[in-house]
Design a protein around this nucleic acid. Structure first.
Lengths: 194, 194, 194, 194
DNA sequence: GATGAATGAGGTTTCATTCAT
DNA sequence: AATGAATGAAACCTCATTCAT
């Protein structure tokens, strides 16, 4: 409904840009309004308050992010392929949108706990996708049957997240996508000599 | 050295408690001063500004944290033992000090980028310890020789960090230390059926 | 006349209800519009601005209030009867319409001076009625000939107003109308032992 | 305690002047601070919030106002003298401080209900003084024994208040104090021919 | 060294009013 | 006549930092 209104979209896009350019704490509502080409008050026709803008940014962007990943792995035949695809998509989408990468990896983490918990909620479907891959891998006997699923999920997510954050903090000066295969290899085979 | 002055220590300890109790954004300088039993102005005799308090908190606490880990792995004979010890120490120290765990995993991350970069600096010796273990493991032919060291380090750190953060966000309701062996196993062997 | 248009009346009635229910400062134009079942913009087809709504509320309601009093005293033979009737009507009409009592005694007084002066204008006919009764009473030799008419009028109006305001602020928990005879007695005879 | 601090007094005095000059709604905290010669933030060292300034203004000024009246009537021998003295003092003090008269009669009444109720609390001692005079007058057989005390008090207060308000709204262009004797006469003897 | 009273910049949100449809 | 989406001005309060004592 409200998602199709052009001003809603414009404000979301403006917020991402303003936060990426100015940093979380210097992103005043008036700055977002100006970038979106609307009056300050117009923001409040579409969002309850400033926090609602930020949650919505995350919902919109991560919703799409997760959906793309879900669609991509859908076509893959086995858990291992799916995992590689997920890593490729995770890195690929953030590498393709530098502003978004800065916002999700650095800026939005400066928010207070309330907001962070709402953000975690948005990530739940992603968690479920990862868990699903792990379960499937076990069923296919590709992955070990003794895996502690939440722990594996935390390893996978923690590794991807830390890898992307490092890349962003080093000003994205190397190719993130190329890291997908070695990361996948690490996760599947570990670091030990076989 | 300013470090031996009793008020310096008192302010550091007060800051940890205040942040753990009230959260990052509700931790005003005056609250820290009160908890430390000094006047607001006295803070500025020992610290350049508020950010300097927080960096110092991290330096003091993480300095000790890293030192303990360094000492512990020093006695271990091979890279694999060292890695397991590092994980045990990482989890063990944070599990032993709940306030510190909350402050490092949740609260201090709400700080701005400048502070976060300084915090990263404090972590450099930890990074080097991890890197050293990896190099050693390769030399000992325990770990694969084709490892991309920064990537492996990001996997290790990302996994540990994500695991601890999850534990804190779930109110530390399970035993973190027990997770050290399976986490170590995941890192070394990966998730694939051997 | 704009007064016969149904939406004009609807907006006036909505305003009284909204102010009585929400208080003066929480009575936004949009709330009045909603209660009246019209669009916000429609308000401005019938009223110059928000102040004009409030003045009109007072004009309509107090106009009728004053008219009723005027009619009632018209049939009375002497000034003393007229005064008692006026008090009875003053108390009676406000006791009969609780919303109106709240609005006139409490809420509309929170308005700014400009509005209050316009409201005073609306009260002029009431002032004249009171003055007329006093003059008549003097002519009839019922009232003393040395009376300072504006002062007497202020005593009468001040007494009635304060009495009603007290009754409203105590949540109208006693019978206001019963106070008419003793108030009349006080005004006519004073407090001194005769 | 805090009442002797010079800045506290300065802020109170500044608030009266600013409200009298600019009106209640145009009296921003920054304007009061400027007139008091302090920084905006200093206000909040002495007052909880803006409302607290206004309540304190009333407390300070009316506290003194009431105290002066109490002292003055203390020396009078009978209730009638006391009543005349009360009226003289009531009119006299407001006539002597035009800013205060504007603030109490016009501006402070624009405040919201919460504040108005706190203001009413401050007036309680005044109510009690009036009631005490009435009781005394009855005991001395100067006043009638059938008086409804709250009603008489409302008549007295309502009459005085309305008289002062009229005087303020007509820009204080006549002598208010001269009205004390005729007002006293009206209250004691009523308007009827004896 | 220690104090703590004083400073003052900075930003979210509301709501009366307009005007294109 | 009627709508309602859009406007944008305006102000309270917090809190890191200073400096006279």
């Amino acid at each position: 409904m409200k998602r199709v209104k052009p001003k809603y979209k414009a404000i979301i896009e403006a917020a991402v840009k303003v936060i990426a350019e100015n940093g979380y704490h210097a992103s005043q509502v008036s700055k977002i309004a100006q970038k979106a080409g609307v009056a300050d008050g117009t923001i409040y026709l579409y969002f309850k308050n400033k926090e609602d803008i930020l949650v919505s940014v995350f919902e919109e962007k991560m919703g799409q992010f997760i959906e793309e990943i879900g669609t991509a792995i859908h076509t893959k035949e086995n858990a291992d392929d799916k995992l590689l695809t997920l890593i490729n998509m995770h890195f690929g989408q953030l590498a393709a949108d530098h502003s978004l990468a800065i916002v999700t990896q650095l800026e939005l983490r400066q928010s207070n706990l309330t907001l962070r918990k709402q953000i975690n909620n948005v990530l739940k479907p992603y968690i479920e996708i990862i868990d699903q891959i792990i379960v499937e891998g076990i069923e296919e006997k590709l992955f070990r049957s003794d895996l502690n699923i939440p722990l594996v999920r935390q390893m996978i997510f923690g590794t991807l997240d830390e890898t992307v954050t490092n890349w962003v903090m080093q000003n994205q000066k190397y190719n993130l996508i190329e890291l997908a295969p070695p990361v996948h290899n690490l996760i599947t085979n570990g670091i030990t000599h076989s």
